[in-house]
Design a protein around this nucleic acid. Sequence first.
DNA 1: CTGTTAGCGCCTTCAG
DNA 2: CTGAAGGCGCTAACAG
Lengths: 343, 343
Amino acid sequence: MARPESNGGSRAATLSDVARLAGVSLATASKAINGRDQVAATTRQRVIEAAESLAFTPNALARSLTAGRTGTVGLLTSDLEGRFVIPILMGAEDAFGAGQINVFLCDARGDAIREQHHLKALLNRRVDGIIVVGRQTDPRPSLGHDLPVPVVYAYAPSDDDTDVSVTPDNVTGGRLAAEHLIATGRRRIAHISGDPAYAAAQDRTVGVQAALAGAGLELVGDVLYSEWSEHWGRDASALLLASHPDVDGIVCGSDQIARGVLDTLRDLGKRVPEDVAVIGYDNWEVLATNSRPELTSIDANLKQLGRAAAMRIFDAIDGIEPDTGVHHLPVRLVIRGSTIPRR
Amino acid sequence: MARPESNGGSRAATLSDVARLAGVSLATASKAINGRDQVAATTRQRVIEAAESLAFTPNALARSLTAGRTGTVGLLTSDLEGRFVIPILMGAEDAFGAGQINVFLCDARGDAIREQHHLKALLNRRVDGIIVVGRQTDPRPSLGHDLPVPVVYAYAPSDDDTDVSVTPDNVTGGRLAAEHLIATGRRRIAHISGDPAYAAAQDRTVGVQAALAGAGLELVGDVLYSEWSEHWGRDASALLLASHPDVDGIVCGSDQIARGVLDTLRDLGKRVPEDVAVIGYDNWEVLATNSRPELTSIDANLKQLGRAAAMRIFDAIDGIEPDTGVHHLPVRLVIRGSTIPRR
DNA sequence: CTGTTAGCGCCTTCAG
DNA sequence: CTGAAGGCGCTAACAG
């Protein structure tokens, strides 16, 4: 392991070390290193060589102190465990990385106290902006408006409409799912979803209903709500098929539920997609591409959501006034074998 | 959204603002705020009130500049997508959070160039230490020894034995899995694993073989290697049962594979665990607790691994010499219905 | 107990 | 084109 002492016992080289070695003043060294033009080419060369021979690394802290901006952003998540949080992180980290900004990761683990604690730490560190990533699409409490930096809420929108939030368009997602089943000729469509307390469940149902209404159809049976699990998918579909054996399409509230549905249909001897088409939600690849048949699903483009949040922070840092409110970002349909038979 | 301007156009309050308002000197204000004892109680009270009324936040950058340490650590991951990386991040973030250290998250996305880039950025920001998290347990190139900060490698150990690495003990994991099947009375045990190019696959196999040898048993058939997928689990187990219909226990290289195995066994009319016991690996809860029956598995304690890495960084920062080399951290058996019938 | 004085490492005027 | 001086916000000696 590299240890501080392994560096010869000397602390990191500083700009004045470089200046001294190059035989110039501190100011000149600074200009040379930072590519300012008021310095002779030969001098610059000499400085750069000196810097290299000392393994000089500019101290970003000192730089930030005067610059007023640190080139860092806080990523405040409510729960890293959440499967939806990770792709958003990735998208944001990616977008910032390209812009030379580094990201502080803070996991509040669903605890408001811890969140306040982390928020304070981020402000102490003078981050240039904060992205708050929630685990559900239900609105969450705003951090408030008396913060000295721009804040964007991702996935879980702020409950304050004068904040800036980005979240997936679940209503459209539900609509796309149902419309796809209708487009493949299904007419007796049911909907099995997860925990009805989630806005995601309600929003998707709204979309499904809208699509059916648009096609002059009605949902087969009531929406079946319970939890976001494979087990529930198995049970719910057994229930559904018992009362409505003629169902020919099932919109599922999640891929996990859809996996359970596929299981039960197989047990009951129903062919997918010939007898019943099944569509999931989330496009969780591990589940969707390993089922038999592979699962058509709705992808919320979460990486892009993360990127979008990052872009809005960028803009805000640059002084561009953001349009406040909740922005519903587009989702997309990913078609696989559970709705369209393979040829 | 909170914007800098929303703060009344004034920049953040500084310590001298506080001092002025409280009618004391800068140094006294500093002492009062930081709980030093050489300050009168009444004075301290006055300063604290002034600070509050100005919403003063100490500037961590300025503080770090003199302190020599920043209270930040870099988390350099090779691939955030990797399922194993996240729990390690969580464990590390958690451990650091408790110690008031903040974490820079950098995703190199498997690219060595990007990794160097991020490394440089972390050093510019004067992190106090770096944890390098890999996506596989195969050794990875060392970052080298000429770094001014301690480095710990997690999951993917460094290929340099004088570095400090923590990684799960896959050999013991394989052994625990096989021993458990043996303990439940199985004698005709097979092993279906993933990509043989992974050290994880090889190590687990070694453990399985050792357990069998210890019980005077031999593996049924050859180890079946291909990929870490449910599909492969289905295919491999079909193959296995065709040539060895008398198998009564299957150690799987991952939970995904095990899920596929369960599928095929059900198709073939084999009861689990009565006819064949199945054990997975990774204890990926979403998969393990949603199968029929639920899946016994080996848990690598990844959160703890992340915590362990953090602890070693803590120690190194405190000047404690770490013991170099690869540390294999304990794994644990999680028993569910796929190996022990429910009563 | 309180205040004054130096810096930490860097960048940015402003003279030379 | 180069150098000297001031300051970013804070803390750690020292004096008083």
